[in-house]
Design a protein around this nucleic acid. Sequence first.
RNA 1: GCCAUUGUAGCUCAGGGGUAGAGCACUUCCUUGGUAAGGAAGAGGUCAUGAGUUCAAAUCUCAUCAAUGGCUCCA
Length: 646
Amino acid sequence: MINITLPDGSVRQFESGVTAMDVAMSISEGLARNVLSAKVNGKVMDAMRPINADSDVQLLTWNDDEGKATMWHSSAHLMAEAVEQLYPGVKFGIGPDIENGFYYDIDFGDYNISDADFQKIENKMLELAREKQTYNREEVSKSDAKQYFTKKGDEYKLELIDELEDGQITFYKSGSFTDLCRGPHLPDTSPIKAVKVLSLAGAYWRGDEKRKQLTRLYGITFPKKKELDEYLEKLEEAKKRDHRKLGKELELFTFSQNVGQGLPLWLPNGAMVRERLEQFLKKVQKDAGYYPVITPHIGNVNLYKTSGHYDKYGADSFQPIKTPIEGEEFFLKPMNCPHHCEIYKSRPVSYKDLPLRLAEFGTVYRYEQSGELHGLTRVRGFTQDDAHIFCTPGQVKDEFKAVMAIVMKIFKALDFKDFIVQISLRDQEDRSKYIGSDENWDKAERAIMEVAEESGLDTIIEYGEAAFYGPKMDFMVKDALGRKWQLGTIQVDYNLPERFQLEYTGSDNEKHRPVMIHRAPFGSMERFVAVLIEHTSGKFPLWLTPEQAIILPISEKYQKYAEKVLKFLNNSEIRARIDDRSEKTGRKIRDAELKRIPFMLIVGEKEEENNTVSVRKQGEGDLGSFEMQQFVELIEKEIETALDTN
RNA sequence: GCCAUUGUAGCUCAGGGGUAGAGCACUUCCUUGGUAAGGAAGAGGUCAUGAGUUCAAAUCUCAUCAAUGGCUCCA
């Protein structure tokens, strides 16, 4: 007999070889029906795997993330089986579960699959799922595994097997499909009641663009049809918050083929939002001891040879522009740091001048691959809220912390709560991607790790994500569709000061090398505004929004009074306008609501008599009657609360 | 850059080898209306661009450009 400990601490005795499913059955049949897999001593495995020793067992259902993962991974196998039956001879890459569903990378050979095939695949999957196919685990020797896939002619699986150790290889069979797989899987296909093949995309085998491109089929499954419908509806809702859609509707920005791909044109509304963000940060930076600088949009090629950008990115940049007579070459600047280094060098620096903080909203141009461009989040010309802090090695930590405080201040002012702090370090295996000595890198990485530790923020570490000149701390947020984007970034750099031979005179009267901190709290104005649009679905905070209030006269008779109200608001620095169209009030309200104007001031006979305004808040409705000064105070208070970041 | 899909009025979209369609937006007129669409009339398009097939191309073919979903990349 063995002891099985359940999550509530209770212990039950079973014969050795009991399965998690048996355990579930002993509790209730209903529970057993919902079990997808089980966590045994912290490891997720098949509910049908025998347990031979005392163990902690947690039964996993659709309510557990791991349970969902099991279901989706099994669904990937089901989709593969359906595809194999419909298109015999296809070969399979990998088919994992992902955050929302699963995918399978498939080599369809000559067949040109398109989304017209989805329905057919879905129907086949449902048909197979109804057969209640069991997922059978089988341990196989390396040679048997290779023999199976050699016979099948699946070179992708053979490549995967080659990298596995003999004795560690398992197959899972379900219906007519056998896959090389670690598991775990569902007991059988019966929980899969609703399926959707979502999209298809090319995906390089093993993520290597030099290798063959397979077709990646994305899908998702649910135990209930209703849940699938809800999921699809949620996706539709998310699309409504897409910044590209809202950017058009609210007239924030646009693109023109005549200007060029990835080169955003900011419309007046968008420019107003962006300018206010810039003003906000400028004030914060002024208080934090930054000096503004301004540098040109191009720089001599030699500047980038010095910085190392030329070697690293020269071939993948917009190519240099040349002077007609001398033939001198200039790059559109892809970064502001080389220019700022030259500013540092413009005069001798004493340790008393440090930290020197040079800030610039610098527009940079990068040649991004055409397939990568995406609304305002990935563009070819964008403005960084850049600054470079030159300091002594001893000042690095305090400066780094001060920058983090600025990032937090901004996130708080804009109510960004959902962000990930990522520490991006060197690739542990391949160091050829980086410039600078190991010693400098170690110093920089250590500094960031220490600051992160002391900050108490939850951080994740990603190896291989560092910039080529130094490690960084990135602030990541998700967009409406769950895609992750990097916004703010703070980078510690010992390398560029060396390349540019930056120096300061210390108190010992000797020359020393400063350390550079690159930082951009917003990251890029374009990307930040994009994410802000999606997070607020276009309802910008009151202090940012282009129009804070709109005055809606009930009829032309109250136009004069409306003008009086407007004048009062303008004198109080409130951005407002009158909707003087010959439309009914209901219509004016509807249009203002759709334009996300925070406050609607309805004025008619009543208001004119009492010298008041009727206030309606966007998305909330009627707030009642206010005196003008009262309304101004309402707005001022809301802004003050939002910007009170201390 | 690669794979797939798409490109018709300012926007959202229907249509489809034989004279270009709708709703909204826009303009004018009527209406002066109290918390999410008042009414009428009008104007607006080389059907992304270029070539080819055809008596005839917005429609079929090819190329180019751009957009969308991914992959790779991201200083």
